[in-house]
Simulated assay, not measured.
Amino acid sequence: MSARYLLPYAPDAIGGLPDGIEAVVWDGNGPAPEAGALRAVEFFCLPYMRHAAALPLLPTLPALKLVQTLTAGMDDVLPHVPAGVAACNARGLHDASTAELAVALVLASLRGIPHFSRLQAEGRWSQEFHQSLADRRVLILGHGSIGQALAARLLPFECEVVPVARRPRPGEGVHGVDALPALLPTVDVVVVLTPLTAETRHLVDAGFLARMKDGALLVNVARGPVVDTDALLKELNAGRLRAALDVTDPEPLPAGHPLWHAPGTLITPHVGGPSSAFLPRAERLLRAQILRYENGEEPANRI
C-alpha cells in the first residue's frame, strides 16, 4: 500500500491514522526517504526546526497536494512550494510559548535580570532600582493570535496594552500601522510580532526607532529582517534604546557580530516556539489537519 502521508511523528504519537492509511515517518534527521517510498505522498508535514532540510523534497513529490508546516511564519517555505499545492501554517500552535517568552524578555530587560546575573557571576551584591512592567505602556505590533495571547498575559501586570495591526479595528481598540508615528513616542515597550513580508521587511527602520522615546525597549519575537539591524545598532550603541531579541538578522547570529555585545541588549537564539508546550499542540494540530484532509474538508490555516 502506498503511503499518502510524510510525517515527522509516528502515527501512534498523534492518535493513529484512519484505517487503511499509511505514512512514511521522517523527522528531518538523517537521509530523506528514497523517492520510491514517496511517489504517492499527497500530504507532507515539514519537520519542526529542520524544515530547511526538507524543502528540497518538495519538487520531487509527484502526488503532492498539501504542505503543512509546524511554524507560524512561512516566509522561508512558500518560495519552495510547487504551483497548485496548498500550503498551511501552524497558526495557534506557538501562541502560548511565544507569548510566554515575550513576557519573559520584557520582564528580564525591564527588571535588569541580565545585569544581576553578571553581578552574581562576580559574587557582587548590589541593590538597585529598575523599571517595573506595572504602569508601562506596551505596544504590540502584530495583533494576530500570538499578539492576542501576549496581550492576555500582559494585562494582569497592570500595564497598558496598545495593539497595532495592519488595518485598524476600532471596535476592538486595535490601531492600524498608519497610527505608529503618533503612538511610538508614547510607549515604553514595543513588541514586534508581525510576519515577514515584503511590506514588513525593515518596518522597524531608522525612522521607526527614532520615534521611540528615550530608554524604550524593543522586543522582537517575530522575524529578524522586520528590524533594520544597522539602524538598531546605532540606537543601542548610543545608549538611547534597549532591545530584547529572540530573532536577528542575520540568523543564526555569527560569533563576533556587534549585536552580541551591544549595550542594553538581551539575546535568545530563536526559542519562542521550542518549549514543552510545543509537542502536544503540534500533535493535536497535525491530527486535526489529517482528519480534515481525509474528509475532503478545507484545510485550516491555508496561506
Rank of each mutant, 00 (worst) to 15 (best):
R166W: 09
R166F: 02
P168N: 00
P168D: 02
R169E: 11
P170R: 12
H175F: 15
G176S: 08
G176Q: 09
D178P: 00
P181Q: 00
P181G: 04
P181Y: 03
A182W: 09
L183D: 05
L183F: 13
L184D: 10
P185C: 05
T186M: 14
V187L: 12
V187K: 12
D188V: 02
V189M: 02
V189E: 04
V189L: 13
V190Q: 06
V191I: 10
V191S: 12
L193Q: 03
T194V: 14
T194E: 04
T194N: 08
T194K: 08
P195T: 08
P195R: 11
L196K: 10
A198K: 13
A198V: 07
E199I: 06
R201G: 03
R201E: 14
L203C: 01
L203W: 03
V204I: 14
D205H: 05
A206N: 00
F208V: 03
F208Q: 02
A210W: 11
A210M: 07
R211G: 01
R211V: 00
G215H: 11
A216W: 00
L217W: 13
L217Q: 02
L217P: 06
L218Q: 04
N220P: 13
N220F: 00
V221Y: 06
A222T: 00
A222R: 03
A222H: 08
R223W: 00
V226G: 04
V226C: 02
V226I: 15
V227P: 03
V227C: 03
D228F: 05
T229C: 00
A231P: 08
L232C: 05
L232H: 09
L233I: 09
K234Y: 01
E235L: 12
L236K: 07
N237F: 12
N237S: 07
A238T: 02
L241W: 00
R242Q: 09
R242I: 04
A243Y: 12
A243C: 03
A244R: 00
L245F: 06
D246I: 11
T248C: 13
D249A: 10
D249G: 06
D249S: 14
P250K: 09
E251C: 13
L253W: 06
A255P: 01
G256R: 00
G256I: 02
H257K: 09
H257E: 04
P258C: 06
P258K: 04
W260A: 01
H261S: 13
H261Y: 10
H261E: 15
A262M: 02
P263K: 03
P263N: 02
P263D: 07
P263S: 07
G264W: 02
T265W: 01
T265D: 01
I267W: 04
I267G: 05
T268Q: 09
T268E: 10
H270L: 13
H270W: 02
V271E: 15
G272H: 14
G272I: 10
G272N: 07
G273Q: 08
S275C: 08
S275F: 01
S276A: 15
A277V: 04
F278V: 08
R281W: 07
A282Y: 13
E283K: 15
L285G: 02
L286Q: 05
R287E: 00
A288W: 09
A288D: 13
Q289Y: 11
Q289G: 12
I290H: 08
L291Q: 13
Y293E: 14
E294G: 05
G296A: 03
G296L: 04
G296F: 04
G296W: 03
E298V: 15
E298S: 14
P299Q: 12
P299A: 12
